[in-house]
Design a protein around this nucleic acid. Sequence first.
RNA 1: CGGGGCGUAGCGCAGCCUGGUAGCGCACCUGGUUCGGGACCAGGGGGUCGGAGGUUCAAAUCCUCUCGCCCCGACCA
Length: 479
Amino acid sequence: MADQKLPTRAEDFSEWYNQIVLRAELADYAPVRGCMIVRPYGWALWENIQQALDRRFKATGHVNAAFPLLIPRSFIEKEQSHVAGFSPELAVVTIGGGEKLEEPLVIRPTSETIIGYAYAKWIQSYRDLPVLINQWNSVVRWELRTKLFLRTLEFFWQEGHTAHATFDEAEAETRQMLEIYADFAINEAAVPVIAGRKSASERFAGADQTYSIEAMMGDGKALQAGTSHNLGQNFAKAFNIRYLDRDGVLQFCWTTSWGLSTRFVGAIIMVHGDDQGLILPPRLAPTQVVIVPIYKTDEEKTQVFDAARKMRDALIAAGVRVRTDEREGTSPGFKFNDWEMRGVPLRIEIGPKDLAKGSVVLARRDKPGKEGKSFQPQQGLPAAVSTILEDIQAALLTRARNFRDANTKEPKNYEEFKAAVETGFAWAFWCGSPDCEAKIKEETKATVRCIPLAQTESSGTCILCGQRSTEKGIFGRAY
RNA sequence: CGGGGCGUAGCGCAGCCUGGUAGCGCACCUGGUUCGGGACCAGGGGGUCGGAGGUUCAAAUCCUCUCGCCCCGACCA
């Protein structure tokens, strides 16, 4: 049993990640380079992410729809910076039904253009606004370097697209969706994120303003976990999305778009996972509780299974996502490790000794070994389990936040800055010039992840050039 | 696309240097003993050695080309 242990995160973070994805059966490699098969367990996690987000979208007035996968190439070319940004990574269909197509079709890398086309047809009057549509789909971007969940040629996401009468409304929408992403990340995924504005160089192709939520992974690197764009009137002008205002004047709409992808699964893995494997936040875990029955004889087995199933049913009735592991031929010890690899937040062990005492053993995934184990009476178990799951959820967030804060420095000078971004984030004033940004990246591999919306000081000097500056950025090496 | 590494059973690898017709561990199947932290014994199934071409009596092994994957860089959610 030599190969049962994962490499530790300290040894090889990248390999640790790859193996968790494969061994927890979240995803597998596809026959096409850079593509991913999302396995049922990974998809179940994604479905829970979808539900948590979709709920929030609906609550803020958005509706879902579906737009086509294939887009006329000319559409992509209508918005200048959009085509410049995306053309290198487009997959293009040139043959259909055995015939060369008159106009090649691109497989959507994102849907601003096709949606712009539709919105232009649908919107006539200010009375038609705002339009608040989201779609759950997959998109294709021909990336050079891929990694399961974090960057694949095809990835699953949601993309929201809205149209408004004024800049202010569009900006409010952009910021609202950013807040929704942050709320989701923190309260559902227990992933602490920093919400902020992107620098010009990191802006979405075709956006006036891009906002993002940024999280710190277990190796100190940053991951952009969701983005929200104020597209200004760029796409409205490219696709002629116009409305007649109250005064009878024809105006261009103001549009937004925002997306969060299966990359977020990668964030959950890298934020919470430990050297035993995955740790899933209870609110998103496909299985929140696993019951492992322990027995020797057939008679014990019957009794233990019976008790385990009753317990399972009581937990289901209490709204807990629970399953019993009734596999034959594997030892309890194996099952413990197996479910720890898969990140199940709470394990219930039940055996003959527990039946005799009317108790069970609970083992928390977030606290390895004895420390996380406790005896619990079978009476009132569902309530106790719910409480513990909430406690785990909170503990994961606290731990992740502490880790991030411990690895976030406020360097006084450029030397300290360089040291800080070796291991984590640096929170530093930046003059805003692309030159300084580029030079910092060249010298340290770190980039401005975002300029946080929550600023703590009103002015200082740029960490590189020393010019007066009014905003601090979060710098770090990014995935 | 540049640099590096690797393709041999589902997974991890040995064999290759020095050609002789494929092996180990894990996993899988069967039976038995086990079972409160990754069990053990016995038996068994599974391979176009990434692909194509070449050299040779004979190629996993030598030569040429090719495809793919992983890691590191440049670009990105």
